[in-house]
């Protein structure tokens, strides 16, 4: 069964992240907060597509639902201040 930690590793292996937090313990439904410089200048759809590309086939096979919040480093700093 896929764990949140494994999912974090799969994502960060293919996408440089300043911060990532994945939660979810049923093996198929996950929530993720992902902060990456790669998101700069991209629409929300494009940001999410980058994450799906990083996950590749695992997304199709093992993950039923991944709801995610994607932020650029700047947006993340603003949301934390």
């Amino acid at each position: 069964m896929l764990s949140a930690q494994q999912l974090e590793t799969y994502i960060t292996q293919n996408l440089g992240c300043d911060y990532i937090k994945v939660s979810g313990d049923d093996g198929t439904h996950f929530e993720a907060l992902i902060v990456s410089p790669a998101f700069v200048g991209k629409s929300m759809v494009q940001q999410h597509q980058l994450v799906y590309q990083a996950l590749g086939d695992r997304m199709r096979a093992e993950i039923h639902a991944l709801s995610m919040k994607t932020l650029t480093p700047e947006a993340w700093l603003k949301s934390n201040s």
Binding site: V45, H48, Q49, M59
Partner: peptide, 15 residues
């Protein structure tokens, strides 16, 4: 290029 359903399209564009 999106692995999940549902998917919304407006004026032919994937939203």
């Amino acid at each position: 290029n999106w692995p999940t359903i549902p998917q919304l399209y407006i004026n032919g564009e994937f939203v």
